[in-house]
Design a binder for these strands. Structure first.
Lengths: 207, 207
DNA sequence: GCACCTATATACCGCTCGGTATGAAATGTT
DNA sequence: AACATTTCATACCGAGCGGTATATAGGTGC
């Protein structure tokens, strides 16, 4: 019944038991969406990667869009956890540095696909009416809002030089983060992006 | 006769004359690719926007991929002309400013689609073997190489503070430019991006 | 007028897409 | 053993994709 439990307790099982683990299947689906984008990820690719058939996918996850949203949840929970901890850094500079280093590790690593799932999905989904795109853009906006709030606090605490608009500075940082995603997806050279991040941090306003 | 002449002289015409202007048709195709990306732009959309039929398209432009490459040529010639002039600015800061302002005008304007065609195409084309993606990424690399060269010259001229690596600084700038493309495509608020660009220029190293 | 050449319009091709109908297999319940 | 319930495997659906075959229309050269 709709993907059922992932939490501890074993649910009452009636009828033929499921032969796959929804969590690992979802993780496999995430990888496909991450490498191919929402629209380019076909059901054939997804089901093959997940090791299940189409009817199983639909019975467990609803449809392609619902599957994507669940994969996006998993992505934010597992892969973007560094954002939450970065925002807790004591200084604005520390926040920026943790965000940049975290993005580098997450989007340029060796084990996961390159680039940011959110950027890939929002840029690639260009349908006139596209709830996927709106969904992703909305999540990004709320994430940026948290960063703005953090920088406004830093501004109030005298942690940022007064002439700088904290809102614009936050936007500047997220712009770099999204640009890094584009670059990570294009060239597979993490060392170069390391230098890029270092350069950006070297011009970042301190105190 | 493969799209034939666009230059002045009227070519020798034998057989039924073409009923459309290849240049304006190509401009229409460019708009479609720009708003939808290469893969999402269907032949139905393209032919409707161009005002021609599929056989006419294939006779004049070859196929979808060839059409895209010609549209990309037109794009770089008409829409990215600001890059060439920006590189001629007397200072590194001037180069950066002209690139950022030019990108803002081009990718956030009211008359053209938002975002950068190159970014949209490279991010959205995720096929295992994708010559479109490689093509776009290669063009971007050559463009970035020119910027690096320009900044190395600026560095030699003492136009950049010595501790900064001109290569990394160039990469930093192009990262922001690509990030701006992502943002321009997502939110339709040029005023906010204006502030973003201002913020970036305010932290840009001077002398 | 006629042959020749090229662009047009229409209909079609094989293929893949997201999604589903159907029947068999595997469990718990009685 | 018989049934209810749920999952699995296969085959299938209509629609849209990029691309093309065919026949007709519209010109020039003779």
């Amino acid at each position: 019944m709709k993907c059922s439990e992932s939490s501890a307790g074993t649910t009452i099982t009636r009828g033929r038991p499921r032969e796959f683990d929804p969590e690992t299947a979802l993780a496999a689906a995430l990888r496909v969406f991450w490498t191919r984008g929402y629209e380019n990820a076909s059901l054939a690719e997804l089901t093959e990667a997940m090791g299940i058939t189409k009817p199983s996918l639909y019975a467990c996850f609803g449809n392609k869009e619902a599957l994507f949203r669940k994969a996006l949840d998993l992505y934010e929970r597992d892969k973007l956890a560094y954002i939450g901890t970065a925002l807790e850094a004591p200084t604005a500079r520390g926040v920026a540095e943790k965000l940049l280093r975290g993005a580098l590790a997450t989007h340029c690593g060796t084990s996961d696909p390159h680039g940011c799932l959110g950027v890939i999905s929002s840029v690639a989904c260009t349908n006139e009416v596209d709830s996927i795109r709106d969904h992703v853009v909305a999540r990004r906006a709320s994430s940026e809002a948290a960063l703005i709030e953090r920088f406004e606090r830093a501004h109030a605490e005298g942690d940022l030089p007064p002439p700088v608009d904290p809102r614009a500075l936050a936007s500047c940082l997220t712009t770099v983060l999204q640009g890094l995603s584009v670059k990570a997806q294009g060239c597979a050279c993490p060392s170069e992006l390391q230098g890029t991040v270092d350069a950006f941090l070297s011009i970042w306003p301190s105190k």
